[in-house]
Design a binder for these strands. Structure first.
Lengths: 195, 195
DNA sequence: CCTACCGATCGGTAGG
DNA sequence: CCTACCGATCGGTAGG
């Protein structure tokens, strides 16, 4: 339970996150993971209880990050478009901070066993509903156009959640700028504003 | 090679598509597939050569559908926003026509072995670049706002490609309306137009 | 962190 | 489409 053990466990989880992203959870074996850490497969089990425990810690850890990022924004008394813009920026920030873990969170959660899968899906639906409320509010205030709410919220999430598949943090677009441009594109569209 | 064999092979691929979507390619065993067809695992091999052959036929079949849907649109002499709107509608139509195969195409292609993976990725990058050109054209004509092109094209694709995760063809939003609303949201944004 | 090993399951073949 | 079976690999344990 000393510092060394804790740190080693984190190394294991970090490397597993990387492999789960690249190959997928099911196609990543404990031997793959052990090899890329330079140890034997059996040795992993002095750090973690099971393969799934790693997936659980990634999925629920990220769920917690997303949830907390939204907490501050939700109750502010500002226009819906500003609230949405801040929500998008917060979500983008969490993803950009850890692209590998985000990819696993987004694509591999389905390999959680019960009751973890059920719990995870509840957290996710709650989070989505909080964004949905912001959009509904904006529509009822006639700030946003009157459109299918599910389509609007899913379009926003999909745009944000595809990021791990293309965003290069070393590229010319930095995290802050990315969040701003994404929010602007979704709220104001691709077309030039009329003068 | 009679009609019965061909039809049975299609049944196998159809059921495999469904399972690959739900459980993922790696986590779906040939015994899972055989069981859900009511036969023994070994019997599958009189219809298909290997597990991966199924994945190949799904991935390359869908790639072909997407490519062909775009062909007619590209060369029309119309405003960029109209071209983009038609491209989005065509892409949406292909996805909505087969949500399961689309999900496999989008998420499971990475389990293709070489040289299939390489070929697949080439087809995909070509397709994305065709959309990118439409956007670049619109920006240079000052029809679209001046923004990061990669971000714009990735945002559009992500919105379209998330559909298999949420769209219910039995719901209140029909395919045509979906394509229209998606294109409208991406091109004009969520905000109300100023009067 | 290792050696040695477990029962279960994998994709696939032989032969009918 | 089946029975019978293959070698390889899986996640994980015992014991040190």
């Amino acid at each position: 339970m000393g510092t060394i053990n804790i740190s080693r466990k984190q190394q294991v989880i970090l490397k597993a996150t990387e492999l789960f992203k690249i190959k997928g959870y099911a196609a990543t074996s404990m031997r793959d993971l052990a090899n890329s850490l330079g140890i034997e497969a059996a040795s992993l089990y002095s750090h973690i209880k099971s393969k799934e425990e790693i997936l659980q810690s990634i999925c629920f850890g990220m769920a917690d990050e997303f949830t907390r990022a939204l907490n501050a924004i939700e109750t502010e008394d500002i226009p819906s478009s500003e609230k949405l813009q801040k929500g998008i920026a917060a979500h983008t920030e969490v993803i950009a901070r850890d692209l590998d873990a985000s990819a696993v969170f987004l694509n591999e959660y389905r390999h959680l066993s019960q009751p973890f899968l059920r719990d995870f899906l509840l957290l996710r639906i709650n989070y989505i509903n909080r964004f949905k409320k912001i959009i509904q509010e904006g529509i009822s205030r006639r700030e946003f156009k009157d459109m299918d709410e599910k389509l609007a919220v899913m379009t926003i999430f999909s745009s944000l959640n595809w990021m791990p598949n293309w965003y290069n943090p070393m590229g010319e677009l930095d995290k802050k700028e990315l969040g701003k441009q994404l929010a602007n594109l979704l709220i104001n569209g691709l077309n030039q504003k009329p003068l």
